[in-house]
Amino acid sequence: MASQGTKRSYEQMETDGERQNATEIRASVGKMIGGIGRFYIQMCTELKLSDYEGRLIQNSLTIERMVLSAFDERRNKYLEEHPSAGKDPKKTGGPIYRRVNGKWMRELILYDKEEIRRIWRQANNGDDATAGLTHMMIWHSNLNDATYQRTRALVRTGMDPRMCSLMQGSTLPRRSGAAGAAVKGVGTMVMELVRMIKRGINDRNFWRGENGRKTRIAYERMCNILKGKFQTAAQKAMMDQVRESRNPGNAEFEDLTFLARSALILRGSVAHKSCLPACVYGPAVASGYDFEREGYSLVGIDPFRLLQNSQVYSLIRPNENPAHKSQLVWMACHSAAFEDLRVLSFIKGTKVLPRGKLSTRGVQIASNENMETMESSTLELRSRYWAIRTRSGGNTNQQRASAGQISIQPTFSVQRNLPFDRTTIMAAFNGNTEGRTSDMRTEIIRMMESARPEDVSFQGRGVFELSDEKAASPIVPSFDMSNEGSYFFGDNAEEYDN
C-alpha cells in the first residue's frame, strides 16, 4: 500500500469516517454492505422474486439502478423543472426478469421514488447511507470498465484509444464523492478537466460571474484530485501550473494530454476495490451473516471469500459463452479491467482472455432483445487465490505491452514486471518541450526514458491461498515475461453508450 500519510484510507472515504482504527473501519464497511443486503432482500420480497430470480444479476442491476435514481437529487430536480413526455419524475423502474413456464419473461416495473427511498433508509437504520449508494455506483463503473473500451470518449477529448488503461471510473457520476474520486484513473480526471476547458473556450461566460466562481472551485478541486494521483514531483508541479492558470485554454489542454500520456509509464495511484452486485450481499445477509459484527474490507480476502460461497446467475444470449460472461463479471467484481492478464489468470486459476476474444456482450439486456431465446446460467466467480488490492500504480518500471492497449494499471499487489510499449508511448511525445512547463516536461520525458521494462514492481508481494486469511504465506508467482498482458488488445469491444 502506498503510505497513507495525511490521506484517509478508502474504507474511511467509503464510510465518510473520520480517523478510525482498522477494526472500526471493518465494522463501518460491514455496516454499509449489510445495509445493501437488507435493502436487496426487501426489494425481492416487494417484487415477489423467487430465490433464483433474486440471484439473477440482471435483476440486481435494475434494483441497484432504481435506488441510485431515487437518490439522484440533481436529476430529480431537473426532471421536475423540465417535464418530458412519458417520463414521470417521481417514478423509477426498469426490467425485471421472471421464469414463467420454463421461459424467461421481461416485466417492466415502476415504483415511486419516495417508496424506494423509504425501503433503502429502513434497511440502513434510517440513514441515507450515501456510502452504500456510492458502492453500487463503483460496481456499475467497474462493470462498464470491463465491458467497454471507451474509444470515442478518448478520441473526443484528444487522447489515444490505446490509453484505455487510464480510464478507470470514466462512467462514474460526478456525485460519487471521495470514494469515487479515489477509483478514477488519470485519464478519467484528464477527460473531465478537458471537457471543462473546452467549454470555457467555447463559452465566454463559463468562468464568469457567480456560476463561474463555482465552476472555478470545481476545476481547482479536480486538479488537486489529479495532482494527488501522480507520484513524481515534476508531474505534480505541472498540475500546479494547470490549476493556477488564470484562464484555462489550449496550453492547459496540451499540458493535460501530455500528463495523461506520461501516466502510461509514470503511473498514478488509483484505488481498486472489489464492489459486488447487491444480489451477492442480499443472500449472505439472508443466511444470517452479520457483516457489521464480522467486519468487512473491500481490499482484502473478504470479497473473494464471499464470491467463493455465492451463487449468481445471468441471462445468456443464444451465441454467448457462459464462461466468457463469467470472466467479464469476475473482472468487474475485482475492479480488474486494466490489470495484467498474466496476473489475473494466476489468481483466477483459469486463463483470462483479452476482451476481443470473449464471445459475450454486456450483462444488460436491451429492451428490444428477444426473450424467447434467452437461457440462463451460473456465473463462475470463484478464484484459485486471493491478493491484496493496490492503491498505487506500482513502481515506475515497465515491460512490453500489446498493440491495442499500451500499458496497464495494476489492481493487485503482486510481484511482476509491468508491461508497456515504450516505443509507441515515446513516439507520441513530439519533443515539444517549450513553453512555461518546459523544464517539467524535459524531466518527465527523462524519467520515462530511463524506466526499464525488466524491473520488478511490488517486490516480494504474492497471492494467498483462500485458507490464508491473515495473509501469512505469500506465494510469489513467476510470469512468462514475453507473454501478452493487455485486456483490450487489438480490440473490438462495443462502445459504451450512456
Rank of each mutant, 00 (worst) to 15 (best):
Q12W: 01
D16N: 11
E18F: 04
E18M: 03
E18P: 14
R19D: 02
R19H: 15
A22S: 14
R26M: 12
I33C: 15
I33A: 13
G35T: 11
R38L: 09
Q42W: 07
Q42D: 10
C44P: 00
C44G: 13
E46S: 01
L47H: 09
L47S: 01
L47N: 07
K48A: 09
S50P: 01
D51H: 05
Y52V: 10
Y52W: 09
G54P: 13
I57E: 09
Q58S: 00
Q58C: 01
N59Y: 09
L61K: 02
V67T: 07
V67I: 14
L68R: 05
K77I: 08
L79H: 12
P83W: 14
S84L: 07
A85Y: 12
D88G: 10
G94Q: 04
G94I: 04
N101F: 00
M105D: 04
M105H: 01
E107F: 07
L110C: 11
Y111W: 11
Y111C: 12
D112G: 12
D112I: 02
K113R: 15
E115N: 05
E115C: 06
I116A: 05
R117C: 14
R117W: 06
I119G: 00
W120H: 06
Q122H: 13
N125D: 10
G126D: 13
H135W: 01
I138H: 05
N142C: 08
N144R: 00
D145W: 05
A146S: 14
Q149D: 04
Q149F: 04
R150M: 11
R152P: 01
L154W: 13
V155G: 08
R156E: 03
G158F: 09
G158L: 07
P161H: 09
M163Y: 11
S165P: 15
L166N: 08
M167A: 08
Q168L: 02
Q168F: 00
L172W: 05
P173W: 09
R174G: 08
R174I: 09
A179D: 03
A179N: 12
A179T: 12
G180V: 06
A181C: 10
A181P: 02
G185Q: 10
G185F: 02
V186D: 11
M196T: 09
K198T: 06
G200T: 05
D203Q: 06
F206W: 08
W207G: 03
R221W: 10
M222K: 12
C223Q: 12
G228A: 13
F230Y: 12
F230K: 05
T232W: 08
A233S: 05
K236L: 09
E244G: 13
E244R: 00
N247G: 10
G249T: 00
N250P: 01
N250V: 07
N250D: 09
F258A: 03
F258G: 01
A263W: 05
G268D: 02
K273W: 03
S274Q: 05
S274R: 04
C275I: 08
L276N: 04
G282T: 08
A284F: 02
A286C: 12
G288A: 15
F291C: 14
E294I: 00
E294P: 00
G295M: 08
Y296R: 01
L298Y: 06
L298T: 06
D302R: 09
L306V: 15
L306W: 12
S310I: 03
Y313L: 15
P318N: 08
N319Y: 06
E320V: 08
N321Q: 13
A323K: 04
M331D: 01
C333K: 00
H334Q: 15
D340K: 03
V343T: 15
L344S: 12
I347L: 13
I347R: 00
G349A: 15
R355N: 03
L358F: 12
S359V: 13
G362Q: 07
E372Y: 06
E375D: 11
E375H: 09
L379E: 00
E380Q: 15
R382D: 13
I388L: 14
G393H: 10
T396R: 14
R400T: 14
A403Y: 00
Q405I: 00
Q409P: 01
P410Y: 04
R416I: 10
R416L: 00
G431L: 13
G431A: 12
T433K: 11
T437R: 08
M440Y: 15
R441K: 09
R446G: 14
M447N: 05
M448N: 12
A451F: 03
A451Y: 03
E454H: 09
S457N: 07
S457Q: 12
R461D: 02
R461Q: 11
E465Y: 01
L466Y: 10
D468K: 06
E469K: 12
P474V: 03
P477W: 05
F479M: 14
F479Q: 08
D480V: 15
M481G: 13
S482Y: 11
S486M: 10
S486L: 01
F488S: 12
D491T: 07
N492L: 01
E494A: 14
N498M: 13
N498D: 05
N498T: 05
